[in-house]
């Protein structure tokens, strides 16, 4: 499933990052969003346009497009 589909509070493991944008991939990697890492959905805005997640030891805000490009597996 996609990261964007996680309900609030749900933890999941990152399976794959599918974005073709190298820059954004690097940025996700350096914020601790890499394969095998555990993430947790913290919040999203009313329209589900922007998400806040926790990953490794930081909190990250990202948009729907980026959240959709991260494939996860619920744990």
């Amino acid at each position: 499933m996609k990261l964007s589909e996680l309900p609030i509070g749900q933890k999941a493991k990152i399976k794959k990052i599918t974005t073709s944008d190298e820059g954004i991939k690097n940025r996700l990697h350096s914020l601790g969003l890499a394969k095998g890492e555990t993430v947790q959905m913290l919040k999203f805005t009313l329209a589900k346009g922007t998400y806040e997640i926790s990953a490794a030891d930081s909190r990250v805000a990202l948009r729907k497009e980026e959240a959709e490009s991260i494939e996860v597996e619920e744990i």
Binding site: D21, G23, I24, R27, L28, L31, T50, E52, S58, R59, V60, A61, L62, R63, E65, E66
Partner: peptide, 11 residues
């Protein structure tokens, strides 16, 4: 082009 990505650390 595509909307610019928004990925940001929340300190």
């Amino acid at each position: 082009g595509e909307p610019e990505p928004f990925v940001m650390e929340m300190p």
